[in-house]
């Protein structure tokens, strides 16, 4: 019979103290590896100019200041294209791209999951295969497509391809498979509800975690999108691109670049903190069947 140990009111099976200690030590080491660089960015962004260049370098900050952030805004207002334009571009691309992806993916996921039509097997198989390679492969031929469509140097070249990104669709389809019961849909259909009504008013409210996850994934990808081969005009470039320009300004801008990195990462991290439990719930059905 296995050894039983209690930990905080619940019985824990098969846990040795040695193992617990070992795992804790590993967790702390890994946690430090993951967290210290993030902490370092934050501390760098709070350092006054002289502290950024002390020798030997200091990890921590002695006199924290928000000077770097105000410097950043000065740098921004000096730029040729108003900085608000970069922010507007990023927000526009992120919102429209995510919205389209959400609408198209959920319609498609519903049909793939809940309607038994000829062809759905190989279509879903193709979606899975598309998770197995990244967009580098199609970038060059897409450039030709974009030229033919006349979308080079327009927002469309960034927004429309985002609509058919497959990871969100895959996660939503898997989630629908297990959390929307066929009998509920069947009874709605018997009551005379149209397929579209069933999709919108019965299936969609039941998969809230999945569409939140899709929104977060799509949004994060677009929010972090930088320079694109399809965009030449300075006025159409993104916030992330503008920041990478500031960072490439070199040592003199060490403080401003740390400040801009902090500003950039606040948004996706906040979004994840708010939606974490929904994302984990969606991920519980993410598995591939063999």
């Amino acid at each position: 019979m296995a050894k039983l140990r209690t930990r905080k009111h619940r019985v824990v099976l098969n846990r040795s103290v040695g193992g617990d200690v070992g795992i804790s030590v590993m967790l702390i080491i890994m946690g430090a590896f993951m967290f210290l660089p993030m902490l370092y960015v934050i501390l760098q962004s709070l350092k006054p100019f002289d502290e950024l260049f002390v020798y030997p370098p200091r990890f921590y900050v002695v006199r924290p200041t928000l000077q770097n952030f105000s410097d950043l805004f000065t740098l921004m207002s000096d730029s040729w294209v108003p900085f608000s334009r970069y922010i507007f571009n990023t927000v526009l691309i992120s919102v429209l791209g995510t919205l389209g992806n959400l609408i198209l993916s959920s319609m498609c996921a519903y049909a793939l999951s809940k309607i038994n039509f000829p062809g759905r097997g190989w279509m879903f198989e193709m979606i899975i295969k598309s998770l197995m390679f990244n967009t580098t492969v199609s970038a060059i031929t897409n450039f030709i497509t974009m030229s033919l469509l006349g979308w080079i140097d327009t927002y469309l070249a960034i927004i429309v391809p985002a609509w058919c990104s497959t990871l969100g669709l895959f996660l939503m389809k898997q989630f629908m498979d297990s959390s929307v019961s066929d009998s509920v849909l069947e009874s709605a259909r018997l009551d005379g509800a149209s397929e579209f009504y069933t999709f919108l008013h019965i299936a969609m409210p039941m998969v809230k975690p999945a569409w939140l996850t899709l929104i977060v994934y799509s949004f994060q990808g677009l929010w972090n999108s930088g320079a694109s081969i399809y965009i030449y005009s300075e006025q159409l470039k993104t916030f992330n691109y503008a920041i990478s320009q500031i960072i490439s300004g070199g040592v003199a801008r060490a403080g401003a670049s740390a400040a801009s990195t902090v500003l950039m990462m606040i948004v996706p991290i906040t979004v994840f903190v708010i939606t974490q439990s929904n994302i984990i719930e969606t991920m519980s059905t993410s598995g591939l069947k063999d």
Partner: peptide
């Protein structure tokens, strides 16, 4: 199942244009 094809069409058409065709074309 006409309605199913109507539901998948917008996504699948874009998916073909921006993912499937580029791979075949390259």
């Amino acid at each position: 199942n006409k309605v199913a094809y109507a539901l998948i069409a917008p996504f699948m058409i874009l998916f073909f244009i921006f993912t499937v065709i580029p791979v075949v074309l390259s």
